[in-house]
C-alpha cells in the first residue's frame, strides 16, 4: 500500500488487503466466541486442582512407604525380575517375541506413530462420532497396552510364569 493510506474504496475505509478476498462487499463476520477471562475463572480452578493433587500425593506419602529391597547384587537375579510397571507391557512383549521386534520395532513404531498421528489423520472433525477409524484404532491400541501392562505387572510370577494375583502377588511399584 502507498503512503496515501488510509484510502477509501466505495465509501469504506480500506485497512488491509487479504489475498483472494474482496476488499468490499460480503465478508465473513466471525462468530462471536464465548470467552472468559483467565483470571479469575481458570486460575482459581487450576489452583484448586493443584492443591488437590498435592494433597493426594502428600497423603499417599504418609500412608505408603516406597519400596527398598536388598542392596544390588550382580550375582543374584531376583525371581521374578520385573521392570517398572510402565515398562511391564514391553517386558510382556519381550517374553513372547524376538527382542528386535518387541524391544525395538514395536516401541519405535508406537513412538513414530504417535508423532505422525496429527499428520496422518487429516479428518478435521473433532467429535469422536465423526472419526470412527481413528477412535477405534487408538482405543484398541490403548486397551491392548493396558492389558499387557496388567498382565506383566500382576499376572507374572517365577520365571515369568502365569500366576493369579490373588494367589501370589509379585507386583512392585
Amino acid at each position: 500500500m502507498s503512503d496515501t493510506d488510509p484510502r477509501e474504496v466505495e465509501g469504506k475505509r480500506l485497512l488491509g488487503i487479504v489475498p483472494g478476498q474482496p476488499a468490499t462487499g460480503e465478508r465473513k463476520v466471525p462468530e462471536e466466541q464465548d470467552l472468559v477471562t483467565v483470571w479469575p475463572h481458570l486460575l482459581v480452578r487450576h489452583a484448586v486442582v493443584g492443591v488437590a493433587v498435592l494433597l493426594f500425593v502428600l497423603i499417599l506419602g504418609i500412608l505408603f512407604d516406597a519400596p527398598l529391597r536388598e542392596v544390588a547384587n550382580p550375582f543374584e537375579t531376583p525371581n521374578p525380575e520385573k521392570a517398572p510397571w510402565y515398562f511391564a507391557a514391553l517386558q510382556e512383549l519381550l517374553s513372547h517375541f524376538h527382542p528386535l521386534v518387541a524391544g525395538v520395532l514395536v516401541p519405535g513404531a508406537v513412538i513414530v506413530g504417535m508423532i505422525a498421528l496429527p499428520y496422518i489423520d487429516r479428518n478435521p472433525a473433532a467429535r469422536p462420532a465423526l472419526r470412527k477409524v481413528a477412535v477405534v484404532v487408538f482405543t484398541s491400541f490403548l486397551v491392548v497396552w493396558i492389558l499387557l501392562t496388567l498382565i506383566g505387572f500382576a499376572f507374572r510370577g517365577e520365571n515369568w510364569g502365569w500366576v493369579w494375583p490373588w494367589d501370589e502377588w509379585h507386583g512392585e511399584l
Binding site: P67, L68, R69, E70, V71, A72, N73, P74, E76, T77, P78, E81, K82, A83, P84, Y86, F87, L90, Q91, L94, H98, P99, L100, G103, V104, E172
Partner: peptide, 27 residues
C-alpha cells in the same frame, strides 16, 4: 522415571536397569 529407578541401588533397581539397557543391544 527409568533413570531415577536405578538410584536406590537395590535389587529392584539393578536388574530392572540391566534388562532395560540390554534392549538397546538389539538396535
Amino acid at each position: 522415571s527409568f533413570t531415577g529407578y536405578l538410584l536406590p541401588w537395590d535389587q529392584l533397581a539393578y536388574w530392572a536397569v540391566t534388562v532395560g539397557t540390554s534392549m538397546a543391544d538389539f538396535v
